[in-house]
Amino acid sequence: MRQEILEILENDCRVTPEQIAVMLGEDAAVVKETIGQLENEKVVLKYQAVINHEKIDNGLVTALIDVKVAPQREVGFDQVAARIYRYPEVRSVFLVSGAYDLAVMVQGHSLQEVAAFVSEKLAALEHVQSTMTHFLLKTYKQDGVIFADQEEDRRQVVTP
């Protein structure tokens, strides 16, 4: 049931526990309790909306930054990652395999602001060896959601 509840919430977190209970044929109290547990265990961290910022033209600029790091004895990459993810400008941080180590997503109000953040804050951090900044130009799909308005219902209105 946990897996099914997560699947429903991941797709639409506004579905109420009562509705989930009906959809799964379970008791509403049990579903509520399970969701509570998932929240307490930090399996479910937050309920967010996926927003197409391009539509509201709020001037937000996002960059994906490849960061190469010298791993630290004992703590590996974690300590450096922690130094990075505490900045509010940083939207996400992933440890990745390949040519660099951390993939960092940064958001700001202008190119200059993001560039300044990278050069003054990120690149200046101890153990950060190099950075490579890619500004995002267009979002096609994010968190499983396709952004183009094209997937409307094309079926006939009544069929056998």
Partner: peptide, 11 residues
């Protein structure tokens, strides 16, 4: 502006 529940095929 119809919501159709008349469709006999997957959405």
């Amino acid at each position: 502006g119809v919501i159709s529940l008349g469709v006999g095929e997957p959405d």
